[in-house]
Amino acid sequence: MAAVNLLSTRGLSRNFGGMKAVQNVDLDLQQGKIRALIGPNGAGKTTLVSMLCGRIPASSGTVTFLGQDVTDMPAHKRISMGMAYTFQITSIFDDLTVFENVALAVQHRLGRAAKQLKPEVLATLERVGLETRSDQVAGDLAYGHQRLLEIAMGLGQEPKLLILDEPTQGLSDGEIDEFIALIREVSANTTVLLIEHNISVVMALADAITVLNFGEIIAEGTPEEIHANPAVQAAYLGG
């Protein structure tokens, strides 16, 4: 079976003032796969995914999602089409309960079927292991639990494409193992784009890896290929 591209970009670029944060990126995400996006700090990873989901507009180039050109589409419409984005810097509703946080993610997908809301929210919380904390105020959670809540909000949307921006930052080793298991399970019916610094997480999860440096793709391939690529090693060693 030929691989179907869920999302593609062509010539995607973004300038901030005179600085080229992302240049000429052609990226294809195959349906059902886990893609990791890696690169040194300041390589433009967050800028790139922000253009994918519409948080910032592209300076030039196109984004195609589900066969539709979404380059000029506002973020909320892309999300409604089936993208989900979890923030690098935890962005939850601090003053609302854990339940309300996830309810907001689930409710949008359910539309009028309000009766389903409660069971679905609780099921989502159970997947990340927060079911016993559903009545706690989100801002009171420990940092690791807030990261899990952020991920739960992504899962609650049941997206076709789940974009995770450094999800394991600040998690303990045990939590990271649980996270890896969770994403494996999710990837059965969701395409995942994972920005990640922790190389062992990348190696454990990714079907393919894209490496970004100074806003450009410098390598793309299987984890083994990337591991052996001299350009990647040079970029990481600052060569």
Partner: peptide, 12 residues
């Protein structure tokens, strides 16, 4: 509470 997050959950 958090306008940016609301937008990124798909709300207009």
């Amino acid at each position: 509470e958090n306008e940016e997050r609301a937008k990124m959950l798909g709300y207009d």
